[in-house]
């Protein structure tokens, strides 16, 4: 590696870190938290015995999973203004990623809820619990154990998917790398540095996932 490349890498660390801390990470965190809340609502709707409610949820999941994330992002940022709704880049990205997480995680949560044995519902009802209480106290805590590994995948995918926000001018890690690369033509070096940034974040998340799984497994025979 020649000296100028080393210099370039050094000078890129600041802006890329800024892109990570101000762009990628908060975008991921906000979208994941809101997306999970949305997913729980969609999952419960999907499980509703009242068919119009479950049909709405099913349609939502189908649209989200059946269209590219980039298209969803473009519709919100570039498409909505023509309908009179102009949204800034950052909120646009938040909305798109929240909807996307909502669609994918809804199916994970639904499957996890269904994995809790019927006997648990019955036992809860014999001690007097109604549906919301059973869900909150008995079913969701057990479902969370099942849901953590696939939800971790969703989160890790999301970290990387937020790089798509660079296409709608959100100054996150990928955008910063592109901005630095453009005048110097050092695409290889700068995109490699960006890749390492994403990788490190995902490593940390994988580690956290293992810790969380161990914690949730504490009441299960090994």
């Amino acid at each position: 590696m020649d000296e100028s490349t080393v210099e370039l890498i050094k000078s890129s660390l600041g802006p890329l870190t800024e892109g990570m801390i101000k762009g990628t990470l908060p975008l991921t965190a906000i979208s994941f938290v809101l997306g999970l809340a949305l997913a729980l609502v969609v999952a419960l709707m999907r499980l509703s015995p009242f068919w119009p409610v479950s049909a709405i949820a099913r349609a939502f999941v189908s649209v989200i999973r059946g269209t590219p994330l980039l298209v969803q992002l473009f519709i919100i940022f570039y498409g909505l203004p023509s309908l009179g709704a102009t949204i800034d880049p950052y909120p646009s990205a938040c909305i798109a990623f929240t909807l996307n997480v909502g669609g994918y995680a809804a199916e994970i949560i639904r499957a996890a809820i269904l994995s809790v044995p019927r006997g648990q519902w019955e036992a809860a009802s014999t001690v007097g619990m109604d549906y919301p209480t059973t869900m909150r106290r008995i079913v969701l805590p057990q479902a969370s154990r099942v849901a953590v590994p696939p939800l971790s995948n969703t989160l890790i995918s999301l970290v990387k998917d937020t790089s798509l926000a660079s296409t709608i001018l959100v100054s996150e890690t990928m955008r910063k790398a592109a901005e630095l690369a453009a005048p110097t033509f050092e695409f290889f070096t700068l995109y490699m540095v960006a890749a390492v940034y994403y990788w490190v974040v995902c490593l940390v998340l994988s580690f956290a996932q293992t810790r969380l799984e161990t914690r949730l497994d504490r009441y299960v025979a090994s």
Binding site: E122, T133, P141
Partner: peptide
């Protein structure tokens, strides 16, 4: 009525004590 099941159906994520407390505490 109180019910005892063939396959106990205890709440696996709660301690024995919490299993017994759950009804009176959360419902009642």
């Amino acid at each position: 009525s109180g019910m005892v099941f063939q396959s106990h159906n205890l709440f696996p994520h709660l301690s024995v004590l919490r299993n017994v407390m759950e009804g009176p505490l959360v419902v009642q």
